[in-house]
Design a protein around this nucleic acid. Sequence first.
DNA 1: ACAATTTATCTTAGTAATGAGATATTCAGT
DNA 2: ACTGAATATCTCATTACTAAGATAAATTGT
Lengths: 170, 170
Amino acid sequence: MAATTRARIDAPDAPRYAEHEERALALWIVLSRAASAVGAVTDADIARSGLTQAEFGVLELLYHKGPHLLGELQRKVLVSSGGVTYIVDRLTERGLVERRLCPSDRRARYAAVTRKGKALMKQIFPQHAAAVADAVAALSPAEQAQARALLKKLGLGAAGVLGPKAAREP
Amino acid sequence: MAATTRARIDAPDAPRYAEHEERALALWIVLSRAASAVGAVTDADIARSGLTQAEFGVLELLYHKGPHLLGELQRKVLVSSGGVTYIVDRLTERGLVERRLCPSDRRARYAAVTRKGKALMKQIFPQHAAAVADAVAALSPAEQAQARALLKKLGLGAAGVLGPKAAREP
DNA sequence: ACAATTTATCTTAGTAATGAGATATTCAGT
DNA sequence: ACTGAATATCTCATTACTAAGATAAATTGT
C-alpha cells in the first residue's frame, strides 16, 4: 500500500513522473478531450437555435425541472453569479424565460420558462437528445453505464478537493 | 437490433425520452461535470503561474513534446486559428515561448519553449502533476485505467460524429 | 428595536477566446 | 512558367463569460 513508484530519470529532456501521476495526467487528458468532443457535437446541435451551451443548459433545466431561484441555477449550471444574470437576461430578451418574484424572499427571483420557451424546447429537444445519443454511441449501453458510474465518482471526488465549500466565487 | 424503446408518456409536464437517450443525456451530464470539476482543480493550480489552462496546455505540450508548428498546436489543443496566435503571443510576451522559422515552408512557424519556459515548467510541473493526481484520486488505479479506456473510446467516437474532417473552423 | 452578518442578485470593467476575412506561400495541373 | 486551389498564419471586431464590488433584503444576536 505504501509502494512508492520512482520516476524514471533516464531521458534528460523528456522528464517523467511517478506512475500514479502519469496515470492521472493521462486520464485528465482523455477526460477533457472526450468532454470537448462531445461538447462540439452538442454545440453544433444547439447552434440551430442560436443559443449557447450555457443558455441551453439553463433553458433545459427550467424546462425539465421547473422554475428555479437564480442561486440554485448558478449552482447547478456551474457559472458565476454575474453569469446567471447575463444568461437569464439573454433568455429573457428572446422571450424564452421570465423572472418571477419570490413570495417569501424579496431579494430572490425565480426564473421560469415561458410558453414560447416551452414551445422551442418541445421543438428542438428531441433532436438534441438524438445528437447526444449519437455523440456517445461509440460506447455500448453497458459501457455507458460503467462510464457514468466512474465519472460520477470522479466528479464528486474532484469537487471535494477544492474544499467542500468552493463551488464558484467565495 | 431494431428494438425501439418507447418513451414513457405518463407525466404531462415532465417529458421523457427513449431509454438510450436518457442514458446518453445522463452520461453527458456527468462527463461535463467531471471535466469541469477536475478542470477547476487544475485551474486553481495553474493560476499560481498566472497562465490560462490553454496557455498552460500549449506550454506543457511544447515542453514535453518539443517544438510544434502552430497548426499542429491548434489541432492538439483544440483551439481556433486565431486562438493559437493569441496564446503563443501571450506566452511569447512572457518570454516562455518563441517563434522559429520553418526552413521548408515559409508560411509556417514553429513554437518552442525558451530556456525561461523550461525553467518555469521544471519549477511548477511537479506540483501540477500532484494536483491532477489529487483531483482524480477518488478512483482507484484500476478504475482510472478503466475510465481512461472508456473515455478514449468515447472521445474518438464523438470526434468522428461531426465528420472526420471537422476539427475546428472549415 | 437595532446593529452586524450573511445571503441573493445585479452592475461594471476587463479578458480569453471565437470566427470571418486578409495575406502570404506552396502545390497541382496544364 | 502560370493560373487556381489549398494551406499556414495573422488581424480585427465581437462575444460570452468572470471577478470584484454594489445594493438590497433577510437573519442573528443582544
